[in-house]
C-alpha cells in the first residue's frame, strides 16, 4: 500500500528545491538537463503508477508519451490552436488511448501483457512514422510553448520553463499520491497482489485496469506535450519502444513502487547520460552496470533502498524513545 511517509515528503521537497536552485545557478546546458530530468520523471512516475502499484509493466508508455507530443504538435503547429487548449486535448486523447490499452489487455498478464502493450505502442509508432503529412521520419518543428506573458512569465526563458516543468512534476507526484491513497489506489495494489482474489471479492478487474491505464496514459501524454514544448520539435524517435524501455529502467533504478523513486531515477539517468557521454559514447554501459548493481542489491532501487534504511532507523529510534518513556513511567 502507498503511504505518504515523512521520508517521501522530504525526498519530494529535496528534489523540487534542489532542482530549482540548480536551475537558477547553472547555465543554459544545466537547465536543459533539469527540464529533461523533470519531464522524464513525469513519464516514469506515470509508469510507476501502473507498473509499481498495479503490476502492469507497460512497454507502450514511450508511444503514449510520443502521442501526447504529436497531438500537441498537430494542434498547435499545424492547426494553430492555442497551447492552452491543445494541452488538455493531448492529455484527454492519450488518456483515452490508455483506457483502450488497459481495457483490451485487462485479461492478459505477465509476458503476454507486456507484449500486447508493445504491440499497441508499435502500432502508434508505425502510423505516425508513415504519415507524410506529419513529416514522417523528419518530424515536425515550430511547436510553440504556452504563453504566460499575461502573468509576466516568459516561457521561452529556459529558467522559467525549467521551474514550470519542475512544479508540474511535483503536481503530478501529488496527484498520483492522492489517487494511490484513495480507495482506487488501494484496490490497484490489491490487484497487483492477488488478482484472482480481487475478482472473487467482486471487483470488475477490467474497469480498474482500464481506468488506471487511462490516468497513467494522460500523465504520460502530459510529459510528451511538455517535451514537445521543450525542444519545439518532435519526431517519431519519441515513440520508439526503447523510450518505454528507458522509462522502465528509470523506474527500476529509482525504485519500483515507490513513486518518488522514479523521479530520483530520472535525475540519475539524465545525469549519467549527459556527464558520462562527455567521456565515452558507451554511457548506456554505465547505466546498465548501475541497473544491475541496483537489482542485485535487493531490487528496491536507489531511493527504495535509502527509504528502507531511513525507515528502519526511524523505527528503531522510535522504539528506543518508547522504551525510555516506559522506563521513566516505571
Amino acid at each position: 500500500m502507498f503511504y505518504q511517509t515523512k521520508t517521501k515528503s522530504a525526498a519530494l521537497a529535496f528534489l523540487v528545491i534542489s532542482g530549482i536552485i540548480y536551475a537558477i545557478f547553472t547555465g543554459y546546458f544545466g537547465r536543459e538537463m533539469v527540464i529533461e530530468a523533470a519531464i522524464l520523471a513525469i513519464l516514469a512516475m506515470s509508469l510507476d503508477m501502473v507498473a509499481g502499484y498495479g503490476g502492469m509493466v507497460s512497454l507502450c508508455h514511450g508511444a503514449i508519451f510520443g502521442l501526447g507530443a504529436y497531438i500537441f504538435g498537430i494542434l498547435t503547429a499545424m492547426l494553430g490552436l492555442s497551447p492552452f487548449l491543445a494541452l488538455p486535448i493531448a492529455i484527454s486523447v492519450t488518456a483515452l488511448f490508455g483506457f483502450a490499452v488497459g481495457g483490451v489487455t485487462s485479461k492478459t498478464s505477465g509476458i503476454f501483457f507486456i507484449m500486447t502493450t508493445l504491440a499497441f505502442g508499435q502500432m502508434v509508432y508505425v502510423i505516425i512514422f508513415d504519415a507524410r503529412s506529419l513529416g514522417g521520419d523528419d518530424g515536425m518543428s515550430g511547436i510553440p510553448r504556452m504563453d504566460l506573458s499575461l502573468i509576466g512569465l516568459d516561457m521561452n526563458d529556459s529558467l522559467t520553463f525549467g521551474i514550470f516543468v519542475i512544479l508540474a512534476a511535483a503536481l503530478v507526484y501529488l496527484l498520483i499520491a492522492a489517487i494511490l491513497r484513495a480507495g482506487f489506489g488501494r484496490s490497484l495494489v490489491g490487484l497487483r497482489s492477488n488478482e484472482t482474489r480481487m475478482r472473487a471479492l467482486g471487483m470488475a478487474i477490467w474497469k480498474y485496469k482500464a481506468t488506471s491505464f487511462a490516468i497513467s496514459g494522460g500523465i504520460a501524454g502530459l510529459a510528451g506535450a511538455l517535451a514537445a514544448q521543450h525542444t519545439m520539435f518532435i519526431s517519431p524517435s519519441m515513440l520508439v519502444w526503447t523510450v518505454s524501455g528507458e522509462a522502465l529502467v528509470v523506474v527500476i533504478l529509482g525504485g519500483l513502487g515507490t513513486l518518488i523513486g522514479p523521479a530520483f531515477g530520472a535525475v540519475l539517468f539524465v545525469f549519467l547520460k549527459h556527464e558520462v557521454s562527455e567521456f565515452t559514447n558507451y554511457w548506456h554501459l554505465i547505466v546498465g552496470t548501475v541497473l544491475i548493481i541496483t537489482v542485485v542489491m535487493g531490487n528496491k532501487g536507489i531511493y527504495g533502498q535509502l527509504e528502507h534504511m531511513i525507515d528502519n532507523w526511524l523505527h528503531k529510534k522510535q522504539g528506543r524513545i518508547s522504551l525510555a518513556k516506559e522506563d521513566n513511567h516505571a
Binding site: R181, A182, G183, F184, S187, G190, G202
Partner: peptide, 21 residues
C-alpha cells in the same frame, strides 16, 4: 489492509478517488 480491500470492494468504496478507504 486485507480486510479493508474486501470491505471496500463489497461496499463499492474501492472506486473512490478522493477518500482513503
Amino acid at each position: 489492509e486485507n480486510l479493508a480491500l474486501a470491505v471496500a470492494t463489497a461496499t463499492g468504496k474501492s472506486a473512490w478517488f478522493r477518500k482513503d478507504t
